[in-house]
Design a protein around this nucleic acid. Structure first.
Length: 214
DNA sequence: CGGTCGATAGTCT
DNA sequence: GACTATCGACCGG
């Protein structure tokens, strides 16, 4: 495992995203260190991608996506969840959402973070789904903009073979994204490792009808 | 299984 | 004021 250089990340996310499968993403904090082996990602392509936060241009929230590759874009959504992207791409506004991972270090801390939040069912997978990935790693808005390739608390390491050849993986439509082509077409920009229990189940975007009732 | 729904607040029009 | 790159519970088959 070695840390990638910035140029390696500064390419089309459709190419880089599958190469991040199997990579190790880690965060060290005063509480301790947690690392995950990435098992599921999604590519987002800015102005070319109606499903991307950055599709309509730069705003306060998505500013990090318009900066240098190799930084962390962290955001807060649905009033309760954080999620993290690796800024990666040859153009502004491009990035890769980290949707799931297997906790390979700091499992007790990751579990403690999950248990700090009220729940009514046993925890099976600690980093299944983007909200849970952020929580396991302890990512918040304070981590937005953090450099993954520097000397700070965040590190990214890629397997030497996987640097050029992605691990055997599957491809499909992104979760919770409805925009895409607008013609019903869905971009197959979700990538995952088959047989991994941490990979989240596919869900279509929430329908609008639901909210109109009553 | 699959479909549906509530929680809950930041973001953007 | 509507929507959201979600999660987990619940309900029907």
């Amino acid at each position: 495992m070695t840390r990638p250089d910035r140029a390696w990340l500064a390419r089309d996310p459709i190419v880089v995203a599958p190469l991040l499968l199997g990579a190790t993403l880690a965060h060290a904090s005063p509480e301790g260190r947690v690392a995950i082996r990435i098992t599921e990602v999604e590519a987002y392509r800015g102005a070319d991608d109606p499903g991307a936060h950055s599709f309509r241009g730069r705003t306060r929230r998505n500013a990090t996506m318009f900066g240098e590759a190799g930084h962390l874009y962290a955001y807060f959504t649905y009033g309760m969840h954080h999620a993290i992207n690796v800024v990666a791409g040859d153009r502004e506004g491009f990035g890769i959402l980290v949707r799931a991972g297997a906790v390979v270090e700091g499992e007790p801390l990751a579990r403690a973070r999950r248990e700090a939040r009220p729940r009514r069912s046993p925890i099976v997978e600690l980093a299944r789904g983007p909200g849970n990935v952020a929580q396991a790693l302890g990512a918040t808005l304070a981590d937005d903009g953090a450099d993954l390739l520097g000397t700070g608390p965040w590190t990214l390491e890629v397997d030497d073979v996987a640097r050029t050849r992605p691990m055997p993986h599957r491809t499909g439509p992104r979760v919770g994204v409805s925009g895409d082509g607008g013609d019903g077409r869905r971009f197959p920009w979700r990538f995952w490792l088959p047989g991994e229990p941490s990979v989240s189940a596919y869900r279509a975007a929430a329908s609008r009808r639901r909210r109109q009732a009553t």
